[in-house]
Design a protein around this nucleic acid. Structure first.
Lengths: 200, 200
DNA sequence: CTCCACTAACTATCGGCATAGATAGTTAGT
DNA sequence: ACTAACTATCTATGCCGATAGTTAGTGGAG
C-alpha cells in the first residue's frame, strides 16, 4: 500500500507520466523505494479511479500520446493523512539472518563468500546513500531542488532536514550490516582458521 | 521461498507436526522468522510432494490423528544447498524511511508519536533478542539445547556461536533503528521547539 | 456433564511484487 | 532508408504472505 504514497510524493512536486515515475524509481528515488512499471501503471489507474489523481492526455510526437497525472486536492489530503498515520510493522522475516543461524551447515568458503557479498551489497548502498547526503548538503540534489521550489523559503531547511534524516537512517543501517558481516568473517576465521595464515 | 528452509531447519532437530511448527513461529523462533499456519500446512504438503519430508500419521487421543513430518536425506541435502547458496537481495522498499523523507507534511505531534513508536517497536525487539543471547550464553535455550543434542560435542561451541551471531546482528539493527528515531525526535525539537520547554 | 480453551488441519480470498512479454510510437545516427 | 535505443503503456502469470473463516477432536475446570 506504500507504492501509492511514494507515487503521490513524487507527483506532489510536479505532474508526471507513468514512464517518468518508472524512471525515477529506476534511478535516484529507487534507492529508497523501488517499483517496476508493471506495478506503476495499474496503480495510477486505480488512483485516478479513487479521485487522487487526474490524468491528462498529452501529445507526444505526431501520433504518440502520453498520460500526465496531476495530484488532486483529495490526493494531497490522502498523502497528508498517510504521513500522519502510524504504520504497522511487519513480523520479522529476514532471509540473511535466518541463514546466519545455520551457517554451521555451510562449508567455510561458501559462508565467507556470502558474508563478503553482504559487505559488498551494503557497501554499494552505503556509497549511494552517502552521495545523496552530499547532494543535499551541497544543494545539487535535482529532486530536492524541484521540491524546494514548491515551498516557501523559510521552510527550505526543514524540508532538506527530513530528506537528510532519511538517508542518515539508511547509511546507519548499511554500516550496521557491514559491521555485522565483518564480525561474521572474523568468527569464521576463529572457528575454521584464517585462510590468510594457512597460505603462509 | 525461505519458509521452506525455515521449516527444514526446525524439522532437522526433531520431527514435528504443522501445529508444532506454527507454535514455534508464534513464539521464540518467530523473532527471527514468522509464518501463519495457513502458509505452513500447504508448504509442508508441497515439501512432502517434493520428497523433502515424509509425513507420518500419529494417533492423538482416541479418534484424533496428527501428521508428524520427518526430514528425508533429500530434505537435508536441499537445506545444505540453500545454506551454501548466495541469496539475492531485494530492492529497497522500507515504508518508515519513505515516510521519514516527507515528515514536513506531518503535524509535529504525529511525527513525534511515530518516531516514538519506532523506538518502542525496536525497543521491544531489542529486549527479546538480548534475552535470546543471554539464553544462549547461559545454556538455557531450549531450542538450542535440543539442536546441540543432535551434533557431536566438539561442534557445540560452533553451533552456538552462529546462533549468537544471528541475534547480535538483530540487536545491532534494533539499536541502530532506535538511535535513528531518537535523532529524529531531537530534530523535531530543533525544528518545532521542544514541547518540554514550552510547558515551563 | 458441560463448557471452554486448546490442539490440529485446512480453505478461500486478496494485495504486493517479481518476471516476462507484447505493442507502438519516437528520435538520432549511419 | 534503416536500425538501434529509447519512450510509453499495458497484460499475464505466479509466488508470497496477510487475514479470516471452517471443521473436528482433546482435556481439564467447575
Amino acid at each position: 500500500m506504500s507504492l501509492r504514497y511514494a507515487l503521490l510524493a513524487l507527483l506532489n512536486v510536479e505532474p508526471m507520466t507513468g514512464y517518468d515515475l518508472y524512471k525515477q524509481f529506476e534511478s535516484s528515488v529507487g534507492y529508497v523505494w523501488h517499483a517496476p512499471d508493471s506495478q506503476i501503471y495499474p496503480e495510477l489507474r486505480r488512483m485516478e479511479r479513487d479521485g487522487l489523481l487526474v490524468g491528462e492526455e498529452v501529445a507526444w510526437g505526431t501520433k504518440g500520446r502520453k498520460r500526465q497525472y496531476h495530484v488532486t486536492d483529495a490526493g494531497r489530503e490522502a498523502f497528508r493523512a498517510w504521513v500522519n498515520t502510524q504504520l504497522d510493522y511487519p513480523r520479522e522475516r529476514d532471509p540473511m539472518h535466518l541463514k546466519a543461524a545455520y551457517l554451521e551447515w555451510a562449508n567455510p568458503e561458501s559462508a565467507r563468500n556470502q558474508l563478503q557479498a553482504h559487505v559488498e551489497h551494503y557497501g554499494a548502498r552505503l556509497i549511494q546513500w552517502q552521495q545523496k547526503i552530499q547532494e543535499i548538503d551541497g544543494g545539487t540534489s535535482d529532486m530536492l531542488n524541484r521540491r524546494l521550489a514548491t515551498v516557501p523559503a523559510h521552510d527550505h531547511s526543514r524540508v532538506a532536514a527530513f530528506k537528510r534524516f532519511t538517508y542518515e537512517g539508511l547509511t546507519a543501517r548499511a554500516e550496521s550490516e557491514i559491521a555485522w558481516a565483518r564480525r561474521g568473517l572474523k568468527l569464521l576465521d576463529e572457528l575454521y582458521g584464517d585462510p590468510q595464515e594457512l597460505q603462509e
